[in-house]
């Protein structure tokens, strides 16, 4: 079964038509170029409105689900220039993301230490504040850390879908 299936998807971004009757399917392990407007539409960004068709992930229609619920079901969009999160640390960001998926999350610190070691990232990276832009190396490390912990099934990059 396809991981993701779009069935005649039409959508507006900021009130302007952006997608028109798009149908495609992505199988696990497959990468596929897509219109760049699709990233926002897939995540249910507040500026987007689906006018026709549907988005099916793992056989379930997610067209009207909240952004957070789509993410919990396996979508992980990457942000080339993520917005600043004043005062939020890498650890508090990841803890909140995991807590949203795991009831009674335990031993988060230990889990984070393990993943940092696996990815050969600095032990202190968890305390890095997301106030300002990360360096390219930090951003790459942070994204790898998110993939390790959140275990997405579909990574959404600008113009490319990568099914894991």
């Amino acid at each position: 079964m396809a991981l993701l299936e779009l069935r005649g998807l039409s959508a507006e971004v900021d009130g302007k038509p952006a997608l028109s009757g798009l149908s495609l399917s992505v199988d696990p392990g497959e990468s596929r170029p897509v219109p760049s407007a699709l990233s926002k539409v897939l995540m249910g960004h507040p500026s987007c409105r689906v006018t026709a068709g549907s988005i099916v992930l793992d056989g379930a229609d997610i067209t009207v689900l909240s952004t957070a619920e789509r993410a919990r079901r396996g979508l992980l969009p990457s942000f080339p220039r993520p917005p600043a999160l004043p005062g939020v640390t890498v650890a508090s960001f990841l803890r909140a993301a995991l807590a949203a998926r795991t009831r009674g999350l335990k031993d988060f610190r230990k889990l984070l230490r393990e993943k940092l070691a696996v990815l050969k990232l600095d032990e202190g990276f968890g305390s890095r504040r997301l106030d300002a832009a990360l360096s390219d190396a930090e951003r790459t490390g942070f994204e790898a850390l998110q993939r390790e912990l959140l275990k997405p099934s579909l990574i959404i990059e600008d113009g490319v879908l990568r099914a894991l």
């Binding site: 995540m43 960004h45 993410a71 992980l76 999160l85 960001f93 909140a96 993301a97 949203a100």
Partner: peptide, 10 residues
């Protein structure tokens, strides 16, 4: 939106 796109509720 960035936080919500990580599964964190509103």
């Amino acid at each position: 939106f960035y936080l919500r796109s990580r599964g964190i509720g509103a």
